[in-house]
């Protein structure tokens, strides 16, 4: 014994995939999409620079409290301190980030499968990923209205079905519509991500101990 087990506050999606050696399940995919878009919206609200594209599952962090962020941002989606910052980071449009997130989520669902094999996804999840990865660029005529952004996604417009994804909010609306009660989305998806972190951390700690 005696081996120190490092306490972690966040795990990357790549670490989770590797530790389990299997893909994420569908509920985790919905939850990671929702939570990630929630933190990206929060960044927009604070008028911080846009996030870059998601290049790999290592860019997605699942935090102890169920938050999900991209890159080096903290659990509140805030950029790391320091003048160096990431100002030179390539800036991407909201739709480009969503497309890259959709691709990485799909790959996490497909993890470990051979090239000629394909996982059969439930139609709503396949539709979500299809929407995320086949988007048209917003023409700018639709005002997102930063001041109207709030923590949840429930307002009158949320009763409408999303035909084309143009924003993080649209992704969140589709994820919320997947649940029997849309207003449960923030609490439910946070709980799914919190459980994903906790279960993976348990395995991580166990493996570290037996080493």
């Amino acid at each position: 014994g005696g081996a120190a087990v490092v306490v972690r506050d966040a795990l990357s999606l790549e670490e989770i995939l590797r530790l389990y050696s299997q893909p994420i399940n569908e509920e985790q995919a919905w939850a990671v999409c929702y939570q990630c878009c929630g933190s990206l919206r929060a960044r927009l609200r604070r008028r911080e620079p846009p996030a870059g594209r998601v290049e790999s599952p290592a860019d997605i962090r699942i935090w102890k409290d169920g938050a999900v962020t991209l890159g080096g941002w903290d659990a509140n989606g805030r950029s790391p301190p320091g003048p160096a910052g990431k100002s030179e980071h390539s800036q991407c449009s909201e739709t480009e980030v969503i497309e890259s997130l959709g691709i990485i989520i799909y790959k996490a669902l497909d993890y470990g499968l051979k090239e000629n094999e394909e996982r059969e996804l439930s139609p709503p999840l396949e539709q979500l990923i299809d929407h995320m990865t086949n988007m048209i660029e917003a023409d700018g005529s639709k005002d997102e209205g930063y001041e109207a952004l709030d923590e949840g996604v429930e307002d009158e417009n949320d009763k409408e079905d999303v035909e084309v994804i143009q924003s993080y909010r649209d992704v969140m609306k589709l994820c919320a519509a997947h649940l029997p009660t849309r207003s449960d989305a923030p609490r439910h998806y946070q709980a799914v991500c919190r459980a994903l972190f906790a279960e993976t951390m348990e395995l991580y700690t166990f493996l570290a101990r037996i080493k």
């Binding site: 094999e117 394909e118 996982r119």
Partner: peptide, 23 residues
């Protein structure tokens, strides 16, 4: 617990996997 249950099918050239791998 932890074991995902999912079906695997042969990849179709028009399927989502094919579309995503082209991006």
């Amino acid at each position: 617990k932890g074991k995902s249950i999912y079906n695997i099918k042969q990849k179709h050239d028009s399927g989502i996997k094919a579309k995503i791998s082209m991006k």
